[in-house]
């Protein structure tokens, strides 16, 4: 019983972390319909950026994550432009070819990281890494609490941005009716590009969390394709708070499976849940497609 409680608590924290690394995708794929399979590769790239700053200047990884967000915002703007000009603009089969495009991007990022850093694991140092908080009989790593807090902050900030600002409302509208948006004098391509920039900027901070939670290696993105897409699809494309709830469900499921059956099963959970959701409730838990 204690073991189960342990697994659930850790699972909730793990889930919040998954939420933080998925929330950008719930904008880019969830709201914009861009099949962004390079999302986890960008995430890992951000971790390496944080690693460099932390290694060279001893700056706290979260602060480093904040520092690289403008860079990632621009990276997002460029990536979307490239995708738009080469694929989306040409119409109907953009989806499938878009996936190929983003797989290519992910592959290039992996290779670049390997060329620069080799295949060894990299990690960062911070006061909250390696220590735990003892409560009752449990030991909760501080780094997981950091992940929890950052995930909550990201969700709140993004939700407010999407509901309270003119641009945020336009981002939610662009998924619903682009032509109608043009009638409001809004250029949907610019809106999508901006939103993609934001979705990518968020990865600066998510990348910091990734390397705070555990060391990273160049191909770590592969472990997160299933997880991030599972979370976003389960959430029901485009819901920010839904993303966190779905991520917590995944985190708890993984954590329970991990304690009861062993670590080798954990990576399969997200794909199993993704397939399950697609079969039973394709619109997701908080689905937008009705």
């Amino acid at each position: 019983m204690d073991l189960l409680l342990d697994a659930v608590v850790i699972g909730v924290l793990l889930g919040c972390f998954y939420g933080a690394v998925s929330i950008g995708l719930s904008v880019s794929f969830g709201l914009l319909d861009v099949p962004h399979v390079a999302h986890p590769a960008f995430l890992v790239l951000a971790s390496y950026g944080v690693y460099i700053i932390n290694e060279h200047y001893g700056i706290d990884p979260l602060v480093a994550g904040l520092l690289i967000t403008p860079l990632f915002f621009v990276l997002g703007l460029v990536a979307y432009r490239l995708y738009y000009e080469t694929f989306e603009k040409r119409g109907t089969d953009a989806g499938v070819r878009g996936i190929a495009f983003f797989f290519g991007v992910a592959f290039i990022i992996e290779v670049l990281i390997i060329m620069q850093f080799g295949v060894d694991q990299r990690s960062v140092t911070a006061t909250y890494i390696g220590k735990s908080w003892r409560i009752a009989d449990m030991r909760i790593p501080y780094r997981m609490l950091v992940a929890f807090a950052v995930a909550a902050a990201l969700t709140i900030v993004l939700t407010l941005y999407l509901s309270r600002t003119f641009m945020g409302r336009a981002i939610r509208a662009v998924a619903q009716d682009q032509e109608a948006l043009r009638l409001m004098g809004v250029n949907p391509i610019k809106v999508k590009q901006w939103a993609f920039g934001i979705a990518t900027a968020v990865l600066g901070i998510a990348g910091a969390l990734l390397i705070i939670v555990a060391p990273v290696e160049p191909t770590l993105d592969r472990a997160y394709i299933g997880r991030t897409f599972c979370v976003v699809v389960m959430a029901g494309l485009g819901s920010m708070s839904g993303t966190i709830v779905a991520a917590i469900i995944l985190g708890v499921a993984e954590s329970i499976v991990l304690t009861s059956f062993g670590a080798s099963w954990a990576p399969a959970i997200s794909f199993a849940m993704l397939l399950g959701v697609l079969a039973v409730r394709p619109q997701g838990l908080f689905g937008r497609r009705s």
Binding site: S163, F166, R169, A170, R172, A173, Q176, D177, A180, L181, M184, G185, V186, R288
Partner: peptide
């Protein structure tokens, strides 16, 4: 209209 936005949000988009 933008069906999954509120009435007020639809109006606000008209004033973009």
């Amino acid at each position: 209209l933008f069906p999954r936005l509120t009435v007020l949000e639809n109006l606000m988009l008209g004033a973009f």
